[in-house]
Simulated scan of single mutants.
Amino acid sequence: MVIGFIGLGNMARALIGGILKEKAVAPEDITGSAATAETRRRMEADFGIRTSESNAQIAAEADILFLAVKPQYLPVVLEDIRNAVTERTLIVSVAAGKTTKWLSEAFPGPVKIVRCMPNTPALVGEGCAAVCRNENVTEEELGLVLRLIGSCCGMAELVPEQLMDTAGGVNGSSPAFVFLFIEALADAGVKGGLPRAQSYRFAAQTVLGAARLMLESGKTPGELKDMVCSPGGTTIEGVETLEKNAFRGAVMQAVGAAIEKSKKL
């Protein structure tokens, strides 16, 4: 099986790293194209994969073809590869906002298309990916993609295509919101006298641990929050301040804005 990547940026790097870590295929069975020679040289040196400047060549060789480029570059890429893919090629797009219907219309015949919305924590194997497919993708092929992406990213789950923009808002954009929260926690620690580096570590580990506690305990966020909030204690005082400043409403609005932007892409 040959796995091809058009675009060799951060997300492709995360996926390739995960595929090789899981030994899904050998390095020589992964190919990729990128706009710059420097990117191609770096990926060859780091992972031992084969690269080309030709998108069409990568598409023609691949059994599974990842379109790992930003949405605005997709029209050019699709024009490059429209006659290079075949009915057997399984295309996996990680571009936000572009539906399977929109993608399939770029090709002269029937194509198999899976959409995937991963996030940047995939770079450390702790990501989350939402996945959907068109009618030409079989259950077996879908299972293969879910296992492949799940092993690379950390988690992959199927969602209806009409909810892909919503899933992208919740998992695709939200790492930036979490980083803002970590930065704010750390700033508060610095204000209180902690060294900057230590404050970052405390804040980041707390967010990591809280997320793992929720996933592994099976408890809801509300239940876990109540476990921390002692009557008349420090934490409930902080929770009240967050509520007064519309913390939850601000987060919901931020995710909503990301969803709306995705729909317009």
Rank of each mutant, 00 (worst) to 15 (best):
F5P: 05
F5Y: 02
L8F: 13
M11S: 00
M11P: 04
A14L: 03
E22T: 13
E22Y: 12
K23Y: 00
A24Y: 03
A24M: 12
A26Q: 09
E28I: 09
E28Y: 08
S33Q: 07
A45T: 11
D46S: 07
D46K: 06
I49Y: 00
S52G: 10
S54Y: 10
A56M: 03
A62F: 10
D63L: 06
L65V: 00
L67I: 04
V69P: 01
V69K: 00
K70C: 08
Q72L: 13
P75E: 01
V77T: 06
L78A: 07
E79L: 06
I81Q: 05
R82A: 10
A84L: 00
E87S: 04
E87L: 15
A95V: 02
A96C: 01
K98W: 09
W102H: 12
L103G: 10
E105D: 11
E105Y: 11
E105C: 09
F107T: 05
G109C: 10
V114R: 01
P118M: 00
T120F: 00
P121L: 13
E126T: 09
E126Y: 14
V131I: 13
N134F: 07
N136V: 07
T138Y: 07
I149W: 04
I149N: 02
G150F: 07
C152L: 04
C153V: 08
M155D: 15
P160K: 15
M164T: 09
G169C: 11
V170P: 07
N171L: 12
G172R: 05
P175T: 10
F177C: 06
V178M: 08
F181H: 01
F181R: 04
E183Y: 02
A184N: 03
A184G: 01
A184T: 03
L185A: 03
A186Q: 11
V190A: 03
K191P: 15
G193A: 09
G193Y: 15
A197W: 14
R201A: 09
R201Q: 12
R201M: 14
F202I: 13
A203Y: 13
Q205T: 06
Q205F: 10
G209N: 07
G209V: 02
G209P: 06
A210I: 02
A211P: 06
E216K: 00
S217G: 02
G218L: 04
K219E: 09
T220G: 07
G222T: 12
G222N: 07
L224C: 07
D226L: 15
M227H: 09
V228Y: 08
S230E: 09
T234K: 08
T235W: 11
I236P: 09
E237K: 07
V239P: 03
E240Y: 10
T241H: 12
L242T: 00
L242A: 02
K244H: 15
G249C: 14
A258E: 01
K261C: 03
K261E: 04
S262I: 03
K263H: 08
